[in-house]
């Protein structure tokens, strides 16, 4: 179980670094892949917080690393000219309030780094971590993501 979750996140992260090695990759797909890692990591943590999976320190750490790494790269994936295309759900506000968007991105990365500094040690700790990380998602999606 432990091995599996670690491997899954590791594999997704692996793909991420693999794909960014190819400079041709469209920023739209890069940022969507980063968000997928964030979602997948939250799914891992959520399963532990809800008791659907047993506590597993290595999986928790891998999930937090997934969030941290993705969010550090995320705000650089919005160069001019990528406002549309590849079914992006990025909202125009990203290019209007760039600083605020970056700040919200950094906030999530920082939350993940704080948690990594002392990895939650049990189910309740993971639950609290979910809350801390989860509050940032809607806060950004409210303004910067648009379902089309």
């Amino acid at each position: 179980m432990r091995l599996k979750s670690t491997v899954v996140i590791g594999a997704v992260l692996g793909c991420l670094s693999f794909s960014s090695a190819f400079a041709q990759e469209e920023p739209q797909s890069a940022r969507q892949a980063q968000m997928k890692v964030v979602g997948q990591s939250m799914k891992e943590l959520g399963a532990i917080a809800k008791g659907e999976k047993p506590y597993d320190g290595a999986a928790v750490k891998a999930a937090l690393e997934g969030v941290s790494t993705s969010m550090k790269a995320f705000p650089d994936q919005f160069p001019a000219g990528t406002e549309t295309g590849m079914e992006t759900e990025a909202a125009p506000a990203i290019w209007e309030k760039t600083d605020d968007f970056r700040a919200k991105s950094d906030k999530l990365a920082a939350e993940a780094d704080t948690l990594l500094a002392s990895v939650p040690a049990d189910q309740a700790g993971v639950g609290a971590a979910m809350k801390a990380l989860g509050a940032t998602c809607g806060d950004c999606h409210e303004t910067y993501r648009l379902k089309r």
Binding site: M42, K43, G138, E142, R145, K147
Partner: peptide, 20 residues
């Protein structure tokens, strides 16, 4: 209750306020 979809995507847009 949480703003998370079953795939752990997060609520967005004007639904954020409604969900809160």
């Amino acid at each position: 209750q949480t703003g998370f979809t079953p795939d752990y995507d997060s609520v967005g847009g004007s639904m954020v306020e409604v969900q809160k």
